[in-house]
Simulated scan of single mutants.
Amino acid sequence: MTQSIKEIKTRLFDPQFDDLAYFAALKEDARIGVKKLIEQYEKQQMKQQQLLTKFQEMSIFEQAAYADGVRFIAGIDEVGRGPLAGPVVAAAVILPKDSQILGLNDSKQLSQKKKDALFVEIQNQAIAIGIGVVPHDEIDRLNIYQASRLAMKIALEDLAITPEYVLVDAMTIDTAIKQQSLIKGDARSNSIAAASIIAKVYRDNLMIDFHHTYPHYGFDKNAGYGTKVHLEGLKTHGICPIHRKTFAPVKQYV
Results as ranks from 00 to 15, higher is better:
Pro83Glu: 05
Val70His: 08
Gly132Phe: 05
Asp19Gln: 11
Ile129Glu: 03
Glu39His: 10
Asp158Cys: 09
Ala176Gln: 15
Ser191Tyr: 02
Leu231Val: 06
Tyr253Arg: 07
Gln125Lys: 14
Lys35Tyr: 03
Val166Asp: 08
Lys245Gln: 14
Lys36Cys: 04
Ser189Pro: 12
Tyr202Cys: 04
Thr162Trp: 00
Asp98Ala: 12
Leu26Trp: 01
Lys47Val: 06
Leu156Met: 07
Glu57Thr: 10
Asn205Cys: 06
Thr10Ile: 13
Ala117Glu: 14
Asn190Gly: 03
Leu142Asp: 09
Lys54Ile: 06
Lys178Trp: 10
Gln49Thr: 02
Ala223Arg: 02
Leu231Ser: 09
Met171Ala: 08
His136Trp: 13
Arg188Met: 12
Ile5Leu: 10
Leu142Met: 14
Val229Ser: 13
Met58Thr: 03
Ile197Phe: 04
Phe13Gly: 08
Leu104Pro: 07
Tyr66Arg: 06
Leu104Tyr: 06
Ala248Met: 10
Pro96Glu: 02
Met1Lys: 02
His237Arg: 10
Gln44Asn: 12
Glu57Val: 02
Asp106His: 03
Gln40Val: 01
Asn190Trp: 07
Met171Gln: 12
Ala92Glu: 07
Tyr145Trp: 12
Glu157Ser: 12
Leu118Asn: 02
Asp68His: 13
Asp158Trp: 07
Asp77Glu: 02
Asp77Met: 01
Lys251Phe: 15
Lys43Glu: 14
Val70Lys: 10
Leu206Met: 15
Gln252Arg: 14
Ala21Cys: 12
Thr236Cys: 09
Arg203Leu: 09
Ala91Gln: 08
Ala199Ile: 04
Phe17Gln: 13
Ala92Gly: 05
Pro241Gln: 09
Gly103Asp: 07
Leu206Phe: 13
Asn105Gly: 01
Gln50Lys: 13
Gly82Leu: 02
Tyr41Val: 00
Met46Phe: 13
Ile122Gln: 05
Arg71Asp: 14
Thr213Ala: 15
Gln252Val: 12
Ala195Met: 05
Glu164Cys: 06
Lys184Thr: 06
Lys97Thr: 08
Phe55Trp: 15
Asp209Gln: 15
Val70Gln: 04
Lys200Trp: 05
Gly218Lys: 04
Pro83Val: 05
Gly132Cys: 06
Ser99Thr: 12
His216Tyr: 14
Lys36Arg: 15
Ala117Cys: 03
His212Asp: 13
His237Thr: 07
Val93Lys: 03
Gln179Pro: 09
Ala194Thr: 04
Tyr165Leu: 07
Thr162Ala: 13
Ile154Tyr: 12
Ile38Gln: 03
Thr53Glu: 14
Leu20Glu: 15
Ala170Trp: 02
Met152Trp: 00
Lys6Leu: 10
Lys235Leu: 14
Val79Gln: 00
Val79Leu: 00
Ala25Val: 10
Gly80Ala: 07
Ala25Arg: 13
Gln180Asn: 09
Gly130Ile: 01
Pro87Arg: 06
Asn190Ala: 05
His216Cys: 12
Thr10Phe: 08
Pro15Ala: 11
Ser111Leu: 01
Leu52Ile: 08
Pro83Ala: 07
Pro96Ile: 00
Tyr22Trp: 15
Ile76His: 00
Gln125Cys: 13
Asp186Arg: 07
Gln3Cys: 02
Arg11Met: 11
Asp106Val: 03
Ala67Ser: 15
